[in-house]
Write a protein that binds this DNA or RNA. Structure first.
Lengths: 97, 97
DNA sequence: ATTATATTTGCCAATATCTGTCAAGACAAT
DNA sequence: ATTGTCTTGACAGATATTGGCAAATATAAT
């Protein structure tokens, strides 16, 4: 399944004329991992987002948002009560502040 | 950390005058598991919700919503971009339909 | 205070999930 | 056919989650 995060990374990477292999090297992981991340087969570790943003000269917060949205979407995917649950959490989050 | 789901289960269980041990037996798990679930230390398996709802004479959808909301909340807990991500997913979910 | 009952907690082993690596395959371009 | 890039599947090690037991703690009654 494609992810917003993965698609954005690929977009940024190609815009910078970076090869998978090069980005992988900068992130110190195997090339295949990056490939999978861009295609939505794997998740990047949350902790790696800042470094990745720096390498791709991207906005950290944008990537964090996309990353988190993917996780959430993945969780509610196909759940019958997704709407209600989302509404409830949104409300609760606002109260927390 | 307390959960909406766990608190509701405890509420329903006591209202039915069921002991942990009795509910545990009906669900075929150890008493300690139910205790932990009610206190938010453990998650009930999604698949067990319908049976639980039946036992507690509760609305399945209500419990599913609470359960899912807990999972979501747990995921965005402390995330700086929680708001944005939630908004994004909510929008996407609506499109999916 | 002692007993009996209910609940909570810490710990362990089993299981499941995640992470990175490797090797083989697909795909283009030349 | 060779080269360079990307993709895929299988694997092993690391992590996380789960259920169960047993001990600790709480609660209630006498």
């Amino acid at each position: 399944m494609l992810t917003q995060f993965g698609e954005r990374i690929r977009e940024l990477r190609t815009k910078q004329n970076l090869l998978l292999r090069q980005l992988a090297s900068l992130l110190d992981v195997d090339t295949s991992i990056i490939s999978k991340i861009e295609r939505g087969d794997r998740q990047l570790k949350k902790e790696q987002i800042p470094l990745l943003a720096q390498i791709l000269k991207a906005d950290v917060e944008e990537l964090q948002t996309l990353w988190l949205a993917d996780q959430l979407y993945n969780m509610i995917q196909g759940e019958p009560m997704a709407d209600e649950a989302l509404k409830s959490v949104t409300k609760k989050i606002k109260k927390d502040k």
